[in-house]
Nucleic acid binder design. Structure first.
Length: 202
DNA sequence: AGAACGATCGACT
DNA sequence: GTCGATCGTTCTA
């Protein structure tokens, strides 16, 4: 069984962000399975990272989930209208998480399209940009504050290492390069602005 | 109690 | 490339 267990999340966050690339994010919604291949991530580390909501172990009602055992979902509202999904990492008490910035839909694609676009015509442009941002990922999988603090070792939201774990047979991927660079939207974070903690495939 | 701001998106020039 | 939408969280008083 290749569903990620708590052990996986109990590791260095930057390493986890890299390793999550190519894995499958799975969401059970109303009896249906939605899933996407993870293509872009970012690491946030409270201990040393001014861009992290829990920088210097800052603990508030919102950041409390980051102090929980690894393998929980941290979902927050940004800009008053978009949600962002993070997977909590590192040992309990070390606030850190991986932000899921992009996926490639592989299951429940019709539902994903409907959640993202409603009845709007699905143009080539919309298709290409269906799930290529953190807010889009949450909208595509029906994730809101209601799913904050969810245990990733449960059956509603989790990560698998291979498509066979979802009963899918997908064409094998050739070798893909892992790219790294500065994170998006953290220009305010002084020296942490330049940490190369964003990772993506291709 | 009130103000400032943000780990974004989509429409538009 | 620019810009406005929109509201929970956080901090200040």
């Amino acid at each position: 069984m290749a569903r990620l267990s708590r052990d996986f999340y109990d590791q260095d966050t930057v390493e986890a962000a890299r390793r999550l690339l190519g894995m499958y994010l799975v969401r059970r919604l109303d009896g249906e399975t939605l899933a996407g291949r993870i293509t872009e991530t970012e690491a946030y580390v409270g201990r040393c990272d001014k861009a992290c909501h829990a920088y210097q172990y800052r603990r508030t009602e919102r950041t409390d989930v980051l102090f929980m055992p690894p393998g929980h979902a941290y979902i927050y509202l940004i800009y008053g209208m978009h949600h962002c999904l993070n997977l909590v990492t590192e040992p309990e008490g070390e606030p850190a998480a991986v932000l899921i910035r992009g996926i490639e839909p592989v299951a429940g694609v019709d539902t994903i399209r409907r959640l993202r676009c409603g009845d709007k015509p699905l143009t080539a442009y919309r298709s290409r940009h269906l799930t290529d941002g953190p807010g889009k990922v949450c909208q595509a999988l029906g994730l809101t504050l209601a799913e904050n603090r969810m245990d990733l070792t449960g059956d509603t939201l989790y990560v698998c290492t291979a498509p066979e774990d979802l009963g899918l047979s997908l064409p094998a991927h050739g070798p893909e390069r892992i790219c790294a660079g500065p994170r998006i939207g953290v220009d305010y974070a002084q020296e942490a602005r330049d940490f190369p903690w964003r990772f993506w495939l291709e």
